[in-house]
Simulated assay, not measured.
Amino acid sequence: MLKIENLTKMFGGLAAVNDVSVEFEANKVNAIIGPNGAGKSTFFNLVAGTHKPTSGRIILDGEDITPLRCDYIAQRGVGRTFQTTNLFEQASVLDNLIVGHRLRTKSGLWDVLINSKRLQAEEKACREKAREALNFVGLSHVENQFIADITQEERKRVAFALALATDPKIVLLDEPAAGVNPEETEGLADLMRKMVQHGLTVCLIEHKMDMIMGIADKIMVLDHGEKIAEGTPKEVRENPVVIEAYLGSDEDVAA
């Protein structure tokens, strides 16, 4: 589904992502791990179109999306969550989610001024899609609550739902389990499995290794912007280069 060819992003003289090539299969859970500053979030920003690469290509379902704006990339089916999701605190959960499906609407200023039938139909569709996404993540019971009044774990689920409301093919999840307890982490892992079961492709960045090793079909490891390993959880766990990047070599420990 997603093919990355020799992707590089330079910030001045610093290579945040350096010549990374990888393929992520459809309907799988793909994980990206690495130490802090490894280039993981920059990699996501490149795929989503927030940053443009210095060189390399990003191919989604056979289409080169590298030059496209981020909104066009989203329309092609790339959904995204962030480490910190900025939601409208004094708006309801449902109203926050309605924003997501507007990516698919066509109404303009004139439609708003005359309250056109197209606008009315699209408003209804957005509301239905928001409720569908909310039901998928298990939060139908809080649709009328303000964001300010829900828990951290529920906010994480709202972020998932916001990405789902855009009708994605692939969802990029940036540290989806950060700040939640082990039981809530397992619940979010189950939600990711459910997304794959419903035909989506999941790609996530996460530091919780127990969750990654239990959920990922494939893992790519970044360090200082470079891909140092990829494979199944077992292959990555036993890779000496990965062990050194995370834990330090025997010489480092001895020193």
Rank of each mutant, 00 (worst) to 15 (best):
Q83S: 01
L103M: 09
V99R: 07
L113Q: 10
R76I: 02
D95A: 11
N115P: 03
F88W: 03
I73M: 10
I98E: 15
L113M: 14
S92K: 12
S92C: 10
A91Y: 13
I114W: 07
I73K: 06
I65R: 05
Q83W: 01
G79M: 01
S92L: 10
V78I: 15
L103V: 12
T66N: 01
L103W: 04
L68S: 05
R104M: 09
D64H: 01
V78R: 03
P67N: 00
R76P: 09
D61V: 11
L103F: 10
L103E: 10
N96W: 07
D95C: 00
S107V: 07
L94Q: 14
V99M: 13
V78M: 02
T66F: 04
R69S: 15
L109H: 02
G79F: 05
F88S: 02
G79C: 03
A74M: 08
A74Q: 06
I65S: 03
Q75T: 05
D61M: 14
R76G: 09
F88Y: 14
G108N: 04
L68V: 11
S107N: 11
L109N: 03
Q83D: 00
Q83H: 00
N86V: 04
D95W: 01
T66S: 00
W110G: 12
L87A: 01
I98R: 15
D95Y: 03
G100L: 06
R102V: 00
D71N: 14
I98H: 10
N115V: 03
G62Y: 08
I114D: 06
R69T: 14
D71Y: 15
T66D: 01
N86A: 13
T105Y: 05
G100M: 04
R76D: 06
H101F: 11
A74W: 08
L68R: 08
T81C: 04
L87Q: 06
I98D: 13
D71K: 03
L87C: 05
K106S: 13
Q75W: 04
Q90A: 12
E89I: 04
E89G: 02
D111S: 04
L94S: 09
